[in-house]
Design a protein around this nucleic acid. Sequence first.
DNA 1: TCCTAAGCGAGACGGTACGTCGTGTCTTCGG
DNA 2: CCGAAGACACGACGTACCGTCTCGCTTAGGA
Lengths: 218, 218, 218, 218
Amino acid sequence: VSPTAPEPTAPDPAGSRRTGRPRSTEADRAILDAARAALVELGWGGLSMADVAARAGVAKTTLYRRWPSKNELVLDAVADLLGELELPDLGSLRADVACVVQRFAELLERPETQTALMAIVAESTRDPALRRRIRTSIVEPHRRLVVLGRQRAQSRGELPPDAADPGATIDLIFDVIAGAVVHRTLVTGEPVDPVWANHFTTFLLAGLTALHTPPTTP
Amino acid sequence: VSPTAPEPTAPDPAGSRRTGRPRSTEADRAILDAARAALVELGWGGLSMADVAARAGVAKTTLYRRWPSKNELVLDAVADLLGELELPDLGSLRADVACVVQRFAELLERPETQTALMAIVAESTRDPALRRRIRTSIVEPHRRLVVLGRQRAQSRGELPPDAADPGATIDLIFDVIAGAVVHRTLVTGEPVDPVWANHFTTFLLAGLTALHTPPTTP
Amino acid sequence: VSPTAPEPTAPDPAGSRRTGRPRSTEADRAILDAARAALVELGWGGLSMADVAARAGVAKTTLYRRWPSKNELVLDAVADLLGELELPDLGSLRADVACVVQRFAELLERPETQTALMAIVAESTRDPALRRRIRTSIVEPHRRLVVLGRQRAQSRGELPPDAADPGATIDLIFDVIAGAVVHRTLVTGEPVDPVWANHFTTFLLAGLTALHTPPTTP
Amino acid sequence: VSPTAPEPTAPDPAGSRRTGRPRSTEADRAILDAARAALVELGWGGLSMADVAARAGVAKTTLYRRWPSKNELVLDAVADLLGELELPDLGSLRADVACVVQRFAELLERPETQTALMAIVAESTRDPALRRRIRTSIVEPHRRLVVLGRQRAQSRGELPPDAADPGATIDLIFDVIAGAVVHRTLVTGEPVDPVWANHFTTFLLAGLTALHTPPTTP
DNA sequence: TCCTAAGCGAGACGGTACGTCGTGTCTTCGG
DNA sequence: CCGAAGACACGACGTACCGTCTCGCTTAGGA
């Protein structure tokens, strides 16, 4: 997963292998860059190992020495495109929500991110291991932003303290935010313009409040 | 798009072709069925034209006479998997919303639908024509369900009459519903269980109401 | 074999079939012409039935209604290119020989004849029936010219009467004349210029005389 | 042309290629053997690359890495079938001539030689480059045998020293010997039996002598 | 005169081979 | 021992041609 430890699972088999020529770290960088470029140009299916090797100025052997297959390589190349979101404290829940929506939309409007995300999600429908890697390296960090935002809102008094099942509502909120932005960007195919973002923020805040309000009308 | 009109774009240029041996309609059916079966078993990438032809009891040439490439064939094979949603009138907005969420989730939990949808969406990030086909044959029919549901709610008095920009809010609602379900199913990788669905319905109703309520609180 | 009776073997199965639309005779002509043109342009292997049909302005069905296969069609198309030789009586054996050499060389220097002859001979190495057709429709007529020439020479007194085994020497003479010209034209790849033709005639006359002279030195 | 240098024209551009895995020489051998076997069994047209590859225990790609097309491969496979003639010194011109006729006839009566020779000659009527390859690798070696035979006869005193244009008469003699044997074998379709061979030898010797005798009869 | 069997154009069909491309493994060299 | 170069087995791709078939239309001859 991590680009600095490309060996499939264990970065160093049993502490050994200290002799011989060490692997070039420039090569890692060049290969991942080449893979990202090829992914954007050609898509997951059109990307070929020989092409990536040629772009990186490297032999095909070198690729296979570091990653066991094309899918693993592309996944590594893609992983760090999607972990960049941060959430500044803007002082109010509404501002925080609007900000995260906008940041996420900006991320998804870059073509390499679109291709990368859709490609690995598509591939993951047939590969449970890949799905797990997506959960840990992409979904989980973003989910944490939602947790953080709610804590801030609670400490400001904008939201009541945690309900009975905090995990479940976190999941839901995350699915709504990420899902709506992804759907608009990739399926509907329309940009996340200010009007839509504003409506969406309103929508979210209402839903958020409703979720934290115990159903008073039984 | 439609399985009965496999010609790439125009099903038959108005007036048809009257000469020559007509194409076998059984073959169309058999090929599309075979393609769907192969898609579920092997995934988009593992599906091979020769295999589809063999399953359909048909020559490979017959496939290429009807579809210009593997992608086009699979797209047609897949298209009618996704247009099946209907929206019964259950008497209340909440019930209608819960129903559509559940139906959509059931659709997306079938493995062939997952593979198919993600694969074509992934491909569409690099192919504007494909994206247009997705919009017209998949997105638009689903979007109409949202329009219908809102009309029903308005005639019941559960929602106020249309706001100033009905299209924009329809788009938003649709993005939220479809996006959240897709995200939960395919990215988060968790099932749409009753708890989540219930929370989501609550969330949606609150948001919906907020969208239809002019911002009275400055 | 005959272009006017294209039915495989029997031109009319048991005298019957007098009803229905008669076959177009123009089509025969057009098809054979098209086949010859295609043969010269593309060679035996490169020639395709669909192409011949298109050149002749005719449907592929029409070809297969008249000839059972590509090879049969091409053979018919080629057959009448090679039966054109005649042998005028020039008054002396030497003149007659020189004339037949020159005529044969002219025939073989036309590209369509080259392609046609070599193609059917090549094909005949794997098809005994084709070899028989070559013998009767191509070899035999030419061989008769040799018989005729010898008779004339004998009646002029230039050669003694038939030896014990006339057929054997006729075969030999024919093989030498045709073989040498064919070899020079197609294998050596040089033209039959007057110098070569003159030497060849001298050579032939000497051999001819020797063959008709009983071996005096036992 | 040579089976040990299958690269289309230049076997290795002077200085070679020193990097990468070297080509398997066993594969060369196995492929050419397989091609020859397939040629005899199936003929030029019936031979398929996939079949040759399977017989040789090799992937189809390996064939195409070495030869650009089926024709080139078969040509190489065939070339060394035809360069096997040698001419022992039997002590007299007549014996030498009889020997070369018999040897050549034996060569041409093997089915693989027939198929191979006719096929490449047929192909060469449409391919000047192929014709040149035939000249240098097949025709020229055989022609040299005629030169050698004449030199021996001259040194024995059976023939006078070279006439004015030795090349021209060599060409002629070669065309007659090779042409007659080829014609009898492939076109006439009769075997080169002892009677024919004996007559042919007599014929050749007479012609040979006449060619070397200046025309004393004005 | 009309009926009817055959010819005809058009083109789909089942096959088979083609030649290309991509993957992941291997084998050789030089650093 | 690493890295480059590239050969290799495998298998899918999309194309071309063969020879067959199935349409609907045309065209004569025999009734």
